[in-house]
Amino acid sequence: MDSKNNDLNDSRRDFLRKGFVATAAVATGLGLTETACKDTKSKTGDTVKLLSPDGKIVEVDSSMINPAIPDSLLSNHNVREGVPGKKFVMVIDLSRCRNAGKCKSACSKMHYLPDNRSYIKINKMQDSDKAAPYWMPTPCFHCDNPPCVKVCPVGATFKLTDGIVAIDNERCIGCRFCMVACPYSARVFNWDTEYQLNITQMNEIKPHAACSTHVTGTVEKCDFCPTNTAKNELPDCVQACPNGVFYFGDEVEDVVSNGDETVRLSQLLKDKSGYRYLEDLGTKPRVYYLPPVNRQFPFKDVEGQNETDGQTSHESGH
């Protein structure tokens, strides 16, 4: 098991490394040869073709690639390991959400997604005809009894010890069983090649090696920004929200924070009647909601938010 992981990690690192070299090659031109010559390794004779950002194929000796970047520049993140001793948890305060959309744009930016695509969605909800509508942001719920992980035939999606449900895009076969198994529609699929990162982006995403590079034909979803959480930083959606809707923290510490205020998780859920969406499904989400009472903003509907009428009312599960 471990050796498999390491192989995988290595191949991922190799890929990033190659991306780094390709960019460096274009940026410094012949300088690369000098850098490579400084290294004691002799040429292997194998050449590797790399795609430069302007779309040209560059061919370099494979010996130039590995020594070009020290390992320390690359994340050591193992996709199958969580942050030890933590159990990440999120609380979403529905009384504060006004569909500002900053969480979505921060998510798109963090994960190198196009503007119209993000792992977090803000849904218009209305529990019954008479009930007032409200906005409900939905990231992945990182369930403790995750239906998506249960059905994965190849272990491409799995639970980390820190509670996160992660995806290995090098393992995923694209059967999309997890997408139909998820009751919350949290997962998205790379139908197209357009989301695939180019070399420059691959280089930029280097510190985020734990995040998906949008491999065509594989599934991906909210990952709680693992590179942030490993550094004790809040996920980008939490940081971006102007209204403090999202609290994020560690269940072991029993503390969550929205950046401005830090509170006891148990106290918050007790005081504000926290609940989990569709609790009766038994999926045990790691994302809690605080009900949309005493709202801070009047509900303003957005044109074209929901194209199909008559489909909006749903039990919110609390």
Binding site: D250, V255, V263
Partner: peptide, 10 residues
């Protein structure tokens, strides 16, 4: 305050 991972708890 008490120091925690993602902020300090008053």
């Amino acid at each position: 305050l008490i120091k925690k991972s993602f902020g300090s708890l008053p």
